[in-house]
Simulated scan of single mutants.
Amino acid sequence: MTKPVGIILAGGLATRMGGGDKGLLPLGGGTLLSQVIDRLAPQVEALALNANGDPTRFENLGLPVLPDSIDGYVGPLAGVLSGLDWAASRGATQVISAAADTPFFPRDLAERLTQAATDAQSPIALAATNDPERGPMRQPTFGLWDVALRQDLRNALQGGLRKVVQWTDKHGAAMAIFDPAPFDPFFNVNTPEDLARAQNLLETAT
């Protein structure tokens, strides 16, 4: 079976980091974004970046840069839609999404999401971590999305929908549940303190 294609979601405004591109912040010997690329690229057939503004700032990555097709920075679903449209142009049937500010997500993300969607016979699967007190906590920027849903998503966004889970629940999204130990693999960098923590975690990340 052909692997899904991947989309890295980097279309946000990064207001808590003072604006700009969080993904280009230094981490380890590279950047946040290079860590994400290193994890996602082996899991997918092809990879693109969802980002708005001048695409030339990412030209050294050698990836297609896909802007939101819905104006106004309406959230991660706009990036998912751009990924679905790109996948359709390639003849792909599924997209795996990952956030550009989350450098430690699982290396078996795509495999586990695909299995969850298959088992549930669902067109969408979202990653989740298992909280011992609150139960599964969904990570809605990490998902598998069926390309057949792209017009439905476009219509929903144009109609004002913004919350990811509001749309995914409508389609009976499955969940792939990941262990949060020794630390949450979906820990994301929102502040300078988070970036410092990510640097410390690099030595223990797997």
Results as ranks from 00 to 15, higher is better:
T102H: 05
A110V: 09
V80Q: 13
G91A: 02
T114A: 15
E111M: 06
I96G: 03
L113Q: 04
P106N: 07
A99S: 11
G91I: 08
F104W: 00
A110Y: 04
A98H: 05
S97L: 04
P76R: 01
L81D: 14
R90V: 03
V74L: 03
F104T: 10
D85W: 12
V80I: 13
F105Y: 12
W86I: 03
V80P: 09
F104R: 04
D108M: 04
A78N: 10
V74P: 01
A110C: 07
A87R: 10
V95L: 10
L109Y: 03
L109E: 03
R112T: 09
R107N: 12
Y73G: 10
E111R: 05
A88V: 07
T102R: 08
A78Q: 12
G75R: 05
I96Q: 01
D108K: 03
G72Y: 02
P106Y: 05
R107A: 12
S82P: 00
F104Y: 01
P76S: 14
W86R: 13
A87D: 13
T93K: 11
A92E: 06
L81H: 12
A100K: 01
D101Q: 04
L77Q: 15
S89L: 09
L113W: 05
L84Y: 11
A87P: 12
P103Q: 07
D101C: 00
F104A: 08
T102G: 01
A98T: 11
W86P: 09
Y73K: 11
T93R: 12
F104S: 08
P106A: 09
G91M: 08
S89Y: 15
Q115L: 15
A88S: 13
G72H: 01
I96A: 01
G75E: 08
S97G: 07
L113H: 06
P106L: 05
D101V: 02
L81W: 11
Q115V: 14
Q94Y: 00
G72S: 05
Q115I: 14
G75T: 05
G83A: 02
G72A: 03
A99H: 14
T102F: 07
F105D: 07
V95E: 07
S89P: 15
G75S: 05
Y73M: 05
A110G: 02
A99I: 00
A78Y: 12
L84C: 13
A87M: 13
V95K: 03
R107Q: 12
F105M: 13
G83V: 00
T93E: 09
A78R: 11
R90A: 06
F104H: 06
T102W: 10
G79W: 00
A88W: 06
Q115N: 13
G75Q: 06
S97D: 02
L81G: 10
S89G: 14
D101W: 10
L77N: 15
T102V: 08
L77T: 14
S97T: 15
I96D: 02
G79F: 00
P103T: 10
L109A: 06
A110Q: 05
A78E: 09
L81R: 13
S82N: 12
Y73T: 13
S97N: 06
R107G: 14
G79P: 04
L109R: 09
L109N: 08
E111I: 03
L84M: 14
